[in-house]
Amino acid sequence: MSSVEKAISMPGEALASDLAALCKASADPLRLQVLRVLREDSFGVSELCSIFDIRQPALSHHLKVLAGAGLVATRREGNAIFYRRAQLGQRPELEALQAALFESVDQIELPEQTQLALSELHVQREANSRNFFRDNAHKFRQQQDLIASYEQYAGTVAEVLRNAPLTHRGTALEVGPGDGSFLLELAPQFDRVVALDIEAMMLEQARQKTQAAGADNIEFIHGDTASDALEGLQADCAVINMVLHHTPAPGQILKDVAARLAPGGAVLVTDLCAHDQGWARENCGDLWLGFDPAQLTEWASDAGLTDLASAYLAQRNGFQVQVRLFGHPG
Rank of each mutant, 00 (worst) to 15 (best):
V105Q: 08
G327R: 07
D191N: 11
I218M: 08
L71D: 09
H62V: 06
L254A: 04
H61L: 00
P165N: 12
R55Q: 13
Q211N: 04
N131M: 12
E112G: 00
L38C: 01
G318S: 00
V267L: 12
A195K: 10
L196Y: 14
E95Y: 02
C273G: 03
L325D: 07
Q90V: 03
R281T: 05
N317Q: 01
G12R: 06
R85P: 05
G264H: 12
G304K: 10
K6I: 04
A300F: 11
D18A: 13
G251W: 05
I240P: 04
L325H: 10
E112T: 02
A229G: 09
G12L: 09
D106S: 02
D106F: 01
I147F: 08
L289N: 02
S104C: 13
S50R: 10
E40L: 05
Q56A: 14
G290A: 04
P57A: 06
L305A: 14
H245D: 09
V34T: 00
H122S: 00
S50D: 10
I54Q: 12
S46W: 09
E231H: 12
F43V: 09
D236K: 13
Q208E: 13
A99R: 15
G176N: 09
E95D: 06
Q295G: 03
S181I: 11
D106E: 02
K24H: 07
E95W: 00
G214N: 01
T171G: 07
T210S: 03
A212K: 08
R141Q: 08
A229H: 14
S42N: 14
T225A: 15
R130V: 05
C284H: 04
G214K: 11
S26M: 02
A25P: 06
E126N: 13
R31V: 00
V243N: 11
C23W: 09
R31P: 00
A249V: 15
S3L: 11
A294L: 14
A262C: 02
Q144N: 01
C284Q: 10
G251N: 14
Q234Y: 00
R84H: 05
E199I: 07
E204R: 13
G265D: 07
Y153K: 04
G12K: 14
F82D: 03
L94Q: 12
A249K: 04
L296E: 07
A73N: 04
N217T: 10
E219T: 15
A226S: 06
D145Q: 03
Q252E: 12
E40Y: 02
L161D: 11
V123E: 12
L186W: 02
Q211D: 05
A259K: 10
